[in-house]
């Protein structure tokens, strides 16, 4: 029997597969398709201090092997997430990771602190990498000092393990990763989307109302693998890997590169059952490549 269990700061996962933030809402919609207890964990949609409407539409566009999105962190605000969404997810026996976003460091602190008041959230994913908002988001994730500063401040107010979600839109992701490790991060989550743009020929203008959007899907998987591999060499924090995962083979690639667990995003849109299907396939794939457990595969792509 292949053991899929993975231990991470703040939680033990029955398997290393979870839906990625922003692609799964707060779980309700996908619970109409399958039992969420099958998941390794759930990462909730980003929370901000107050409710946000997000960007104008169109907010999504398909690309070769992927898509662009510019939702703009639409969410009902942290208080409503805590009173209305967390209790729903808490009805399942699955670790919950809350994605924390903000326009200012004070807002990050406020949101992170709010999650101290619920016993159901296991960890925070610090979103310093959203490319689709004018203020905050990526401005904290592109600069090592800013990234360290927001990590430190959030760690100071939060009682939960903090996974910092890194942006690939930076000159040197290893420097950012080291910087947040020194600032006290408990883990990393990588990668967020790559900034992109698509022109609409009929209008001769950018298709997305926000003009730019975040590129996700299989198109970015090699970028994610390369960055996780590079970061793993220099940082000892556990990594939740993401970027274009569609199959159990993809999961193994991420584990080999150095991820301890993975998040599946865009593929949920193509196939709403993709997470449980991957989880079902994973033991067979691990076995085929000679692993008795998921944990055994973590970082094995680095062995001499």
């Amino acid at each position: 029997m292949t053991d899929l269990t993975v231990k991470l700061p703040g939680m033990t996962l029955t398997n290393p597969v979870m839906p990625a933030s922003g692609c799964f809402g707060f779980g309700r919609e996908y619970s109409a398709f399958y039992d969420l207890n099958q998941l390794g964990a759930v990462i909730m949609k980003a929370a901000t201090g107050n409710a946000r409407f997000g960007n104008d539409t169109p907010r999504v566009a398909e690309t070769a092997s992927g898509m662009l999105n510019a939702i703009g962190l639409q969410n009902p605000g942290v208080q409503r997430i805590i009173t209305e969404e967390v209790p729903y997810l808490a009805g399942y026996d699955v670790p919950i990771i809350a994605n924390v976003a903000g326009s200012t460091i004070a807002e990050y602190e406020k949101v992170a602190e709010a999650f101290n008041h619920t016993s159901s959230v296991n960890a925070l994913e610090l979103n310093i990498s959203c490319p689709n908002v004018k203020e905050g988001g990526i401005q904290f994730g592109a600069d090592p000092d800013m990234a360290a500063s927001v990590t430190e401040k959030v760690k100071a107010v939060s009682g939960l393990p903090v996974y910092v979600k890194l942006s690939p839109n930076t000159a040197d992701i290893v420097t950012i990763a080291r910087s947040v490790e020194q600032a006290g991060a408990d883990g990393l989550s990588m990668i967020n989307t790559l900034t992109g743009m698509q022109m609409q020929l009929s209008r001769q203008r950018p298709l997305l109302a926000n003009e730019t959007g975040g590129l996700s899907g299989p198109a970015i998987k090699p970028v994610a693998i390369r960055m996780i591999y590079a970061v793993k060499k220099h940082v000892s924090l556990p990594i939740i890997g993401m970027g274009g995962i569609c199959t159990a083979e993809d999961v193994l690639e991420f584990l080999l590169a150095g991820a301890s667990a993975v998040a599946v995003g865009t593929a949920n849109f193509t196939n709403p059952y993709v997470c449980p299907e991957i989880i079902k396939q994973l033991p067979r794939v691990l076995e085929r490549y000679g692993f008795d457990s998921a944990a055994e595969a973590i970082g094995r792509g680095h062995d001499e």
Binding site: G22, C23, F24, G25, R28, E29, Y30, A32, F33, K45, A51, F53, G54, T57, P58, R59, V60, A61, M67, N69, I71, Q74, P76, N268, F269, P272
Partner: peptide, 21 residues
């Protein structure tokens, strides 16, 4: 509208409305 998930999770296809949210 252009849709992402089509199941209400991703908030790609929203329209402003006279509702509480």
């Amino acid at each position: 509208e252009r849709m992402g998930c089509g199941t209400g999770a991703c908030l790609a296809c929203v329209v402003r409305a006279e509702t509480e949210s």
